[in-house]
């Protein structure tokens, strides 16, 4: 399941809802991305996330479907927020559940790596010196490469 929302989320409540008292799940992995209070040493007072309504949901659904094709997941969840946020607040939650831990760990990393390079979100950091759009990182593109399948790498 995917959700794009302005309001904060409760990590514990989301995981409990996903488990739904099932007894066949053996591993649940969760990742939470949060707002840092500094960027390259400069203080951040607020972060605003812009997104592309419609395409955001399509991309997240595509990424989730791909993870479910690659790993035997029993459940998966992506929640991504947009709008203004303060340091310390949640930005994104990824949860994966599988019978054994390896699939859940790998799928959670895959979901985050794909989301960071494909989902249409843009961060603007505000501090005492004014606002700045965050630059994309080359390390995020590199992180994506390790998931390339032999067919895709040959393209």
């Amino acid at each position: 399941m995917i959700r794009v929302q302005q309001e904060n989320f409760d990590i514990g409540a989301e995981i409990e809802r996903l488990r739904d008292n099932r007894t066949d799940i053996g591993a649940i992995v969760s990742f939470t991305g949060t707002v840092r209070d500094t960027a390259q040493g400069a203080p951040i007072t607020e972060m605003t996330l812009e997104h592309y309504p419609g395409m955001t949901e399509k991309e997240l659904e595509r990424i989730e479907a791909e993870a479910n094709e690659r790993w035997p997941l029993q459940e998966s969840l992506i929640i991504h927020r947009y709008g203004p946020m303060k340091p310390g607040e949640n930005i994104v939650l990824v949860v994966t559940a599988s019978p054994h831990r390896q699939a859940a760990f790998e799928a959670a990393e895959f979901l985050m790596d794909f989301l960071k390079t494909n989902a249409p979100f843009w961060k603007k950091e505000d501090g005492p010196e004014g606002g700045d759009w965050v630059d994309a990182r080359e390390s995020d593109d590199d992180a994506l490469k390790r998931w390339e399948t032999p067919e895709k790498a040959a393209e």
């Binding site: 592309y52 395409m55 991504h80 930005i91 994104v92 989902a119 979100f121 843009w122 961060k123 994309a136």
Partner: peptide, 29 residues
């Protein structure tokens, strides 16, 4: 760029596009 909400390269044909978006590299997560 994206055509009808799908990422495309700059040499993509725009025939029949309903919606074309321009944006910087994404920085979510």
């Amino acid at each position: 760029t994206a055509i009808d909400q799908t990422h495309v390269p700059h040499d993509a044909a725009i025939a029949n596009a309903r919606e074309i978006a321009f944006f910087p590299p994404v920085t979510g997560g």
